[in-house]
Amino acid sequence: MMNPFNPSISTPSGIWNPLVWILVFLLSLLIAYVIYLKGEKQRKKGMQEEIFLSGNKADGNTHIKASNIGWGYLEAMKGYYKLMRDIHTGIINDYVGWFLGVLATMLLIFLFWGGVR
């Protein structure tokens, strides 16, 4: 029978208990706070506290638009995204065509890769 106060789930290679996780999380927060308290008291004022964005000094009101976020990732994956944009045509005929294509593939899979168990 289920015990509501022991929410652990045993997985094939371990166990997951959210309450233990929360305890460890709080403990690590505490440790982080202790380390923070032990920090350097004589830190310098100036450059360290200023905000920079890609090497440029930014005031608190700079906002990055959504299309500019992840530019490096999108640039690196340019070829893949070009292919994907070409596939996503938005034409209704293609939607039906892909459906029929997968249908044919499924039939071929079952013809050549085993039908009856």
């Binding site: 009101n61 700079t62 990055i64 959504a66």
Partner: peptide, 16 residues
């Protein structure tokens, strides 16, 4: 990553 992108661009930043 993509939900952080939404969080940043919709909720953070100056009051528009």
């Amino acid at each position: 990553a993509s939900f952080l992108k939404v969080f940043h661009s919709a909720f953070m930043g100056p009051k528009l």
